[in-house]
Design a protein around this nucleic acid. Structure first.
Lengths: 152, 152
DNA sequence: TATTGTTATACTCTATAACTATA
DNA sequence: TATAGTTATAGAGTATAACAATA
């Protein structure tokens, strides 16, 4: 008897999720970074200088957690704290030159990985794949939002 | 100017990865479980009673780590340690009735999630999607293995 | 009063190294 | 001598709660 087709698809997807996590963690480690710290740098790279509050929301962690990550990244010379121009309670976390360089390299890596994975896929099939993935993510996003709404 | 098609696909895939991680962690937490502990239970559910060594390899963590996870799961009544029948150095970690029940429910959830995500996808398109995902995972797996080989 | 970030404290996951009991 | 699992120790990520400075 054959296995449930939908479950097979989900299992393969979870296998891919696991491989991604491992591969990315290994890449980060080569640069002396951890997934959590890289995530913060990545947000900074795409959003520009941000307050701790904004980072906490983007990363979905507590402000306390951001303090620790920024401390670690600052002592590595990847980011620096600057005073907020209008709110003296707040600070702005900014990428240093070193942090910017690291993120630029990571963006290159990112594109190379995309090419490695999808470069040989025919254009039409890639388009369909992207559509399917996007649809799945949207559906999962909605399911999570519903769950959270129900639970509150 | 349009964005690199392959990068868009990768970004959507990573978005899906993130949503999966969050959704699964939230599900586990409702059962009082963490991702790492659930992973161990899941392996046990599929492989049957296992030695610490076998678990460490399956989870890709150190034996020391397994000791801690088994300690926590044992004090929650999810698993128990039994003497190995032939090797007195070793132990066998076994699911208790409570642990088995928890994993059975999780397998049901798993199937329901698969249906939620893929239930409405036409059969042919699901087949193609599964093939693409499997191919991607295989390719990534090979890339990781190559990396590790080069680095040693 | 509410908000921003920090200090204080604690728990989980993870690793390396040293040790015990057994093979 | 090698292997299985544990104790000892340490670091990273995360959370809650209390607090200071500012809005």
């Amino acid at each position: 008897m054959t296995e449930h087709r939908q479950t097979v698809a989900l299992d393969q997807l979870l296998r891919l999720v696991d491989l991604f996590s491992r591969d990315m963690a290994a890449r980060f480690e080569r640069d002396g970074l951890t997934p959590a710290r890289t995530h913060l740098l990545w947000v900074l790279h795409h959003s520009g200088p941000s307050t701790g509050r904004a980072l906490a929301q983007a990363l979905r962690v507590t402000p306390r957690n951001v303090t620790g990550l920024v401390d670690a990244l600052a002592s590595d010379g990847m980011v620096e704290r600057r005073p907020h121009p209008t709110d003296r309670r707040a600070m702005l976390v900014c990428l240093t030159a070193k942090g910017t360089e690291s993120m630029t390299k990571m963006a290159d890596d990112h594109r190379r990985l995309a090419d490695l994975l999808f470069g040989t896929l025919p254009r039409a099939r890639l388009a369909e794949f992207t559509a399917t993935i996007t649809d799945l993510a949207d559906r999962l996003d909605r399911a999570i939002a519903d769950e959270e709404a129900t639970r509150s």
